[in-house]
Amino acid sequence: MKQIVKGLLLLATVLVFVLIYFPIVVIALMSVNASSTGQTFTYFSFVWYGEIANNTLLLRAIGTTLFVAIISTTIATVVGTFVAIGINSLKRNQRLNMMVLNNVPVVNPDIVTGISLMVVFGLLPISFGINTMLIAHVFFSIPFVVLSVLPKLKELDKDLFDAAQDLGCTSLQAVVKVIVPAIKTGIITGALIAFTMSIDDFVISYFTTGSGVQNVSLWIYARLGRRNFSPAVYAYNTIVTVVTIVILLRLNYYSIKKKMRRLNQ
């Protein structure tokens, strides 16, 4: 009986992994498939990896994606950290109210966030473009930073801030020199989440950018089912996936090593 249950659990897990990794494998396959339509596998080739460098519009889209991701992540991480520290110091009821506000963009489907921002930008005297895209990305990133920093803050000794001030820190120094280092892991996680959310965003960028500027997702969407769709984007995406897996493996490797060391002591 126990074995049957275990088998079923394993089966469900395998099924999940198959379904979520199938498209990843197909994308990787397409990236080394010489066919330009990708409907059949013609022969193995790295030609699309080289093609990334030749496709000016795709290159520009990659540049835009990275630019927006880096700037918005930096802003969102700094702002989000301070906001989380502020929220953590609120009384319970006020804190819960702020968290409701904070979680709206997290729970809201992208399309609702997208049209909401579009309507606001439409009212303001600014033109749609990279600026509006950047504001939109900062907007949806901050709540994720707050959500990943807050649990770390809750674990902190409540008197830490007062102790730092007692020893001569100003309020800002106490935050920067004492609290921020103590919640470092939460901040890094938050920044990573913000960065990946920004890199992959399609829907919110779509509604808030207008026609002049394209990130990778907008580049793809504009070319879906068209002849100017280049499989070089499969190559780009595969590189991104491999890089994230390597980073995660390294992080995990260090945490395993740390665990082993602790066990040995």
Binding site: F22, P23, I24
Partner: peptide, 30 residues
């Protein structure tokens, strides 16, 4: 690591993942 493996596909472009399924669902496919 296994849990991280659940997240990794989310970080791959969703439009491309949709296209990947689309390619498989046509009668002529890889």
């Amino acid at each position: 690591f296994f849990v991280a493996l659940i997240i990794i596909p989310v970080w791959s472009n969703m439009l491309l993942r949709i296209i990947a399924w689309e390619k498989l669902f046509f009668p002529i496919s890889i």
